[in-house]
Design a protein around this nucleic acid. Structure first.
Lengths: 209, 209
DNA sequence: AGTGATGGGTAGTGTTACTATCCGATAGTG
DNA sequence: CACTATCGGATAGTAACACTACCCATCACT
């Protein structure tokens, strides 16, 4: 298979409902199209690179496949899937939640209380608090500005498709893979920024230990 | 315990070497200081919010505790830990790697080949390719600009400490928790951007279904 | 002296993402 | 037309991981 998954794994995905059944030509023969291959590659990307669980991927893809579901719901499901991927069931402190709310207000964002990003960002703040580190408003504003830039790019990208299925798929991929894309680029930018701040020590020298 | 972990869990962390042993006053009594409580909270943040594995957290904290290790090594270890958290052992396509390299060059970043961000970003690009979506240079440049802003904020934050232990810890937290912080904020910014682009449909409405 | 907690170690548990095997039916081959 | 290799589908097993429950010897406290 040229999909990065073994036959057994593909069967497993079918059982979990991530993959629609092929057109059955007879009780034991089914026809799998190029669309199925595409879907398997998408699943692998969501799981391996995006870090989604099989269950979460199933929920998201279910929305994508549901022609009656508005794309906003697809979007919301993808956002929730990413929130559940990390954070599990931890509850952030009220103070951090409030600070994120203030940050959003300062940035001029109208945000629903149900947005899973609030919990995720607040939990990150709690992590800083865990080592008694105080994060400055400047730091948070920097991150908020970066997030606004990325979100703008996300929206522009969606304009490249206009069919419902294409938009839904791209929405999912953009939401899920935008995080690792940014994370990777931040590593690169950090190396550059670090070598400028502390000349002589490459930020990402290989660890030889 | 006010650390978010049960006694049994703390014992487990000790066995795994994430937590130094307390000062033993007798064969079955040990003294645990506030420093230990702090450490446990840090571990919880790295695992729950940062998504690190126990093993990865152990490697990173080992570097932090090693007074002889230069902070650049702490940094590199933290970066690798995040890379391993997602992506597992997948190999990106050469084309994507090359495109990320070009993007870094265009941004003026001097980047080592060993930087784990390359693989992570390239894998994300491969995910877009999986659904035959083409990502524009404008999109990538937007993300690169956002990454540069965030990395700059990261560096500024480090200036708030000057002792080696403090810098190392903050470096780890910043590297590990910066990802979910940004991810959460991006969700918020997406909701705003989406509601502006498609008025009437809130991007993150609760899913009732 | 007695009781209950503590540190330390071993073994077990629940979850997740596969993976190996089995089965009946059928497609292709000679 | 027989025969074997392969396929779809289902069941059960596996490996990794993050705990968690239990046991035991020792010790603090009353």
């Amino acid at each position: 298979m040229a999909t990065g998954a073994s036959v057994a794994t593909v069967k497993y995905y079918r059982r979990e409902g991530l993959l629609p059944a092929g057109v059955k030509t007879s009780p034991n023969q089914a026809q799998y199209s190029a669309e199925h291959v595409r879907r398997v590659r998408l699943i692998r990307a969501l799981l391996e690179t995006g870090g989604l669980s099989v269950a979460a991927a199933g929920r998201v893809l279910g929305r994508v496949d549901d022609e009656g579901a508005p794309v906003e719901h697809v979007f919301a499901e993808a956002q929730h899937a990413m929130g559940d991927a990390s954070a599990s069931n931890a509850v952030p402190s009220a103070g951090s939640v409030e600070r994120i709310g203030e940050l959003a207000a300062r940035a001029g964002w109208a945000v629903s209380d149900a947005n899973p990003g609030i919990v995720q960002a607040a939990l990150a703040l709690d992590g800083f608090a865990a080592i008694d580190a105080t994060v400055s408003d400047a730091y948070l504003s920097g991150y908020a500005a970066a997030a606004a830039v990325a979100a703008g790019a996300d929206m522009d990208l969606l304009d490249s498709r206009d069919d419902r299925a294409g938009v839904a798929e791209l929405m999912v991929v953009g939401t899920v893979l935008g995080d690792p894309l940014f994370a990777g680029l931040r590593r690169l930018a950090q190396e550059q920024a670090s070598s400028r701040a502390r000349p002589g020590g490459a930020g990402s020298r290989a660890v030889d230990a």
